[in-house]
Write a protein that binds this DNA or RNA. Structure first.
Lengths: 174, 174
DNA sequence: AGCCTATGATTATGCGGCTAACCTTTTGGG
DNA sequence: CCCAAAAGGTTAGCCGCATAATCATAGGCT
């Protein structure tokens, strides 16, 4: 791919990520929520009580993220976490009454977010934009699915000897 | 806007943000970089030495973010920060030799990121996707510019009565 | 039964990003 | 000339999100 096009694509995605999140923050703040938290509430609303693992995959993030976010939302009184009676490992999370009461306003904020996001489009019909974004989202999800099984290989208890860890081949860590 | 469409739009943007970042992390890790850091290096490469403030607006994030990221990149030896001789307040940041040496590999990773992002598109021509994403990015940038100067006034606020500090009207903070 | 693995969740740690508050240096009036 | 306002950065604190390591329970297999 042309490096110029690549740069355009990556930069556009970065801008969209940051600005959409900022807009979400502004619209969710009156409801006492941070961006990302609303997704958990929506998933619980649409699918009913969920295991934290289910909530993780439903919301597209990793289990530790759910642990922390669910804890905060529980402290805020918006959801309840209970131990499963069937399996002592799993914790089931569900909306609380306060959480449920928040949903209409949340739905409204969610709609405003989308409206304001596309309000200044110059050349793109919103319907086509949604289709293209969904297509891109699927493409990225597929890329992830293809890359993931390679690294998540046969986890035997015996630690695999990887040789000498390359000192320059990992992200900076301070 | 139709709530269904709004949900599709917001969810797609969320998925794109998370997955694109994850893919970037995977491609940048061999170079010792985290997603977001490459942007600073590219900007310095394309525009020459910059003030941290200029770097902030060029990279689309806030000054405190630059302070921390630039510090880490300096610690990694990829860039240099020097006090401006003209103005004791400003610090000028520029690529180091090591940072410059990293650019070709960075350019390659950046291109791979874009290629892999669009590799599984089903119905969307990549050129159109780039155009639409750029349009959306501009729209969101414009929304930000519009919301920033005015203090959220013009809308009629029916839900919350301004006057008593509502204990639930700010993001959850623990 | 006994062990070994798989699974669900949590802890620890780190990064990018943000806002609010603060410090320092410049600058612009009176 | 001096002092107040503006401008550039940093600090402190928080959140979402991630990976790696750990803990605890469930399940399978001999």
């Amino acid at each position: 791919m042309d490096p110029r096009q690549a740069e355009l694509l990556n930069s556009a995605i970065r801008t969209i990520s940051i600005r959409h999140r900022a807009l979400a923050a502004a619209l969710l703040a009156p409801l006492g929520l941070h961006p990302g938290q609303e997704v958990l509430l929506f998933e619980l609303h649409n699918r009913g009580p969920l295991t934290q693992g289910q909530l993780a995959s439903a919301s597209g993030c990793e289990p530790p993220t759910i642990t922390n976010s669910a804890r905060r939302l529980e402290a805020a009184g918006l959801l309840v976490r209970t131990e499963s009676p069937d399996d002592a490992r799993v914790t089931i999370v569900d909306l609380s009454d306060r959480g449920r009461a928040l949903l209409p306003a949340l739905q409204q904020a969610w709609t405003q977010l989308a409206e304001q996001s596309v309000a200044r489009l110059l050349t793109t019909p919103p319907e086509r934009l949604v289709e293209d974004l969904s297509d891109l989202a699927s493409s990225l999800e597929a890329a992830r699915a293809r890359c993931s099984p390679c690294s998540t290989r046969s986890r035997s208890r015996e630690p695999v000897d990887e040789g000498v860890p390359d000192p320059g081949s990992a992200p900076i860590r301070q």
